[in-house]
Design a protein around this nucleic acid. Structure first.
Lengths: 190, 190
DNA sequence: CCAACCATGTAAGCTGTTACATGATTGA
DNA sequence: TCAATCATGTAACAGCTTACATGGTTGG
């Protein structure tokens, strides 16, 4: 029975974690998960079967999800306790400048999944780390503009950087708005 | 002499094209190119030697760049005619919704490189395709919001989508601003 | 009965990264 | 002379994609 220990140390990939987030929001079949990637603006990942099914198999072998018979014909994947645990660990990570700069879409995806955790404190902490990351990123951009390389930018180059600056400003406004909305939802609930 | 035909069909990867863009802006050594990734907000790629040097070797074997002795000690890579050709082909591609949605940073990077082409017509065409792509992407997001999946969004999910909407609106404003700036620069030059 | 959709899978390969090594040059 | 920076490289592999296959179910 050595097989039951297989993959004990392994952590899921980003695609795997995204699948965990979706399964957590509601048990689904592989096909249903594909359709989410196909029909929603998650964007980052391909909806092709060659992407999703191998990832699901791996998650199952790691015992983060398990198939259970569902309504009518098919089976749906459910999150296991272990699966819920790694998902929450992922969602609990603070947003770093590096994440925001290199894969901002993941930072937003994690935020969207955070809903299922239903933990206002966690959500506020997440948004605060988000705000810090964006501020730091913005400061970095401005420092670059003052550097030698920044001063030497061509017209189109500086326009591209300008977009970066305004995108970060917009993200900061969004964070504050999101914090307001979360606070409102919290006060309504009690 | 069969070796001279090697890699004739191959097209560079995104990293390769980014390197071509940088080399086109000014001949540089591998190390200097690494430092660009390290010190500028290009973001997308790692500045580690294991990324850049193999990519440069491949570009050289494809005869898109060639090393030439430069000032003092080292050598610098220069773009070949073939290299300039593939770079321009890359920069001339219109921005598609898919590119904007999946890797917006590449769309901005290509724009910044377009400066070296020094072709106002090309630049305007590029920005117009950019605008169409963003408009289409925005329309897609709004359609999603009106769909079943969109109506069923959780609070945090809809906040995440809201950010997508305002990011796209900001991008549209940026495109118009960029078009203005390009027009101004054009009229000044004559 | 046939097209469209539901549903799942494998094989091959591209792209890029991390981790590991190595040595030259130069300024304090 | 010794640390920092310049400079280049390889090996292993992670992570995902495209292309290819296959078969069941269902509604018109």
């Amino acid at each position: 029975m050595a097989g039951t220990m297989l993959g004990d140390r392994e952590r899921p990939t980003t695609l795997g974690l995204a699948l965990l987030g979706l399964v957590n929001a509601g048990p689904r079949s592989g096909y249903a998960l594909r359709m989410v990637f196909e029909n929603t603006p998650i964007g980052r990942f391909s909806s092709s079967p060659g992407s999703i099914y191998p990832a699901l198999k791996k998650l199952e072998s790691m015992r983060f999800i398990e198939p259970r018979p569902s309504t009518g014909t098919g089976k749906a994947f459910h999150l296991t306790e272990r699966g819920r645990h790694v998902l929450l660990e992922w969602l609990s990570r603070p947003v770093t400048v590096d994440e925001y700069d290199r894969e901002p879409d993941v930072a937003f995806l994690r935020f969207a999944f955070l809903d299922a955790a239903n933990d206002a404190v966690l959500t506020v902490r997440y948004l605060e780390s988000f705000e810090s990351a964006v501020k730091e990123s913005l400061a970095g951009l401005r420092a670059f503009l003052r550097s030698d390389e920044g001063e030497a930018l061509t017209l189109l180059g500086s326009l591209a950087v300008q977009h970066g600056v305004s995108a970060r400003k917009a993200a900061l406004r969004w964070v504050r708005h999101a914090l307001d909305m979360v606070a409102m939802a919290g006060s309504i609930q009690r």
